[in-house]
Design a protein around this nucleic acid. Structure first.
Lengths: 171, 171
DNA sequence: TATTGTTATACTCTATAACTATA
DNA sequence: TATAGTTATAGAGTATAACAATA
């Protein structure tokens, strides 16, 4: 392709890194990548993650933090170990995640009455209030990312993605 | 929900972390997460990434390494800067990526004849040979991850994912 | 004995910034 | 003056292992 001099694309506005990620640069041969579900997911994920971070920056919320907030809100009283399992991360990771959400004033550790080793997680009233705004921002972000899809296509996409996974699992 | 004692699910076989990530634990309320395209993508990505790593471990190949290999194979003569742009990472990242692939004997840096600052990337014959096996393994992995989808659904999914992205881009 | 939360540690990934040699 | 590759450094994110308190 010899893009060296000819196809030289407009370079990044900031130093080093450009608009993040162009999912499909014209004139480039992506070979098998274009036929892989995994690569399509990866591509989309990079774009979504980047936009999420920007959109939720005012609340200092990352995807894992958002997932944790929603899960705690909808399932109050979970132990940290429970959350670790739901998020698929180690318990030590939940400690730091919880520390962060506690520092933001969104989450509270409540001593369990049945197990003195454990803490039950719940939202503070500030966290509950913040989550409303945060959820709205996330919905807006999500709508923007799928704005080229109809509602039907969006549902279809979610449904198809839910069936992705190694051979004998879920469903 | 009070899963503390009652709903206590079978715990990880290894210490700390379980089978990775259960995308949807029954009895748990995922709230808005179930309606977000972004979360569906994130879920799928975690499962795919994990399986990819296991499947490609024999070749010591990660998703970024695989993408790089394919792009170099199909577009020989790219500069490292070109690859950085395609992958959406910093130039310094490509240096290490290339170092790794060079150490594996798969990629070669060839001095450009037109620009003495630049190197053109290309596969070695060993890299070319290895890529055949690697591609086969990746295809197998990808087929396993989407084994619950028909060919038509798989195509549809790839097509829908390609349309994900912030408002005014691609397509 | 096993589990909960915690800490300490390390490892990976990647960005930033500065440097050099070219252009 | 700008760009290619490189290096050094630092910051996330997350895993592992060990520990005290409790079960």
């Amino acid at each position: 392709m010899a893009r060296s001099t000819s196809t030289q694309r407009s370079l990044p506005p900031s130093d080093e890194i450009g608009p993040g990620f162009e999912s499909h640069v014209p004139g480039v041969d992506y070979g098998v990548l274009d036929n892989l579900v995994g690569y399509a997911i990866r591509r989309a994920q990079i774009l979504v993650y980047d936009d999420f971070l920007q959109a939720l920056a005012p609340w200092d919320i990352t995807p894992p933090r958002f997932s944790a907030l929603v899960l705690i809100a909808r399932n109050p009283g979970m132990k940290q170990t429970d959350l670790a399992q739901l998020l698929g991360i180690a318990r030590s990771g939940v400690v730091m995640l919880t520390d962060g959400l506690e520092a933001l004033g969104y989450v509270r550790r409540v001593a369990s009455k049945t197990d003195r080793r454990a803490y039950m997680l719940e939202l503070t009233s500030a966290g509950s209030k913040a989550l409303s705004a945060i959820e709205a921002a996330v919905r807006e972000h999500d709508a923007r990312m799928s704005s080229r899809l109809s509602e039907a296509e969006k549902s279809k996409l979610i449904q198809l993605l839910a069936r992705i996974g190694p051979a004998g699992e879920q469903q």
